[in-house]
């Protein structure tokens, strides 16, 4: 395990306030187009029909990035994106029924597929090397970590639901 010492991952703390909004908006557009194609292949929902839903998700994403950039306090952009998307779909909020109907045409699993394709292509030689040199012990531990985190949450959530109905 000592051999991993020279293999530092370069994960820089991302200061989202520094990102250029215009560039990110264009890249986000590319991501949405690929997501739309994924949705078409999996569900058969064509471009015209999926457009309003994808446009809503695009606008939520851009607004979230902007809020993370310009708000005086720090909250990650994904948190802002979620909050906006939650608020516009709460029953009773004007237009929420239309929004829910439109985004309902987009398959959530299809939107995760492009991110994982980028992920597979992005893996660096360092990440492969760390996984290799850490050895089989760390693989077993990692599986136990994921299993334990998930099961711990399930057990506590289940007990609490039984108590509070």
């Amino acid at each position: 395990m000592q051999t991993t010492e020279h293999l530092k991952l370069d994960i820089e703390p991302v200061d989202e306030r520094g990102i250029r909004v215009g560039e990110t908006m264009l890249l986000l557009l590319i991501a949405c187009v690929i997501g739309g194609v994924a949705n078409y292949v999996s569900t058969g929902v064509g471009a015209a029909e999926a457009f309003p839903g994808m446009a809503i998700l695009y606008v939520c994403s851009v607004l979230g990035l902007m809020l993370a950039r310009f708000m005086p306090f720090y909250l990650p952009s994904v948190a802002w994106v979620s909050l906006i998307a939650i608020v516009i779909t709460i029953p009773g909020v004007p237009g929420s029924e239309w929004v829910v109907a439109q985004v309902g045409k987009i398959n959530f699993l299809s939107l995760a597929t492009p991110a994982l394709a980028y992920g597979g292509l992005a893996l660096s030689s360092k990440e492969f090397a760390i996984a290799r040199t850490s050895g089989w012990k760390i693989v077993i531990v990692a599986i136990c970590v994921m299993l334990g985190t998930y099961l711990g949450s399930v057990v506590i959530a289940d007990l609490t639901l039984r108590m509070f109905g």
């Binding site: 890249l27 998700l57 994904v78 516009i88 779909t89 029953p91 909020v93 959530f108 939107l111």
Partner: peptide
């Protein structure tokens, strides 16, 4: 691009939360 590509997914997930409030 992983972070950017996952953002519309995060938005889609948010829209499933509101109706279930």
């Amino acid at each position: 691009m992983i972070t950017i590509a996952i953002t519309p997914f995060v938005a889609k997930f948010g829209t499933t939360v509101g109706p279930q409030i």
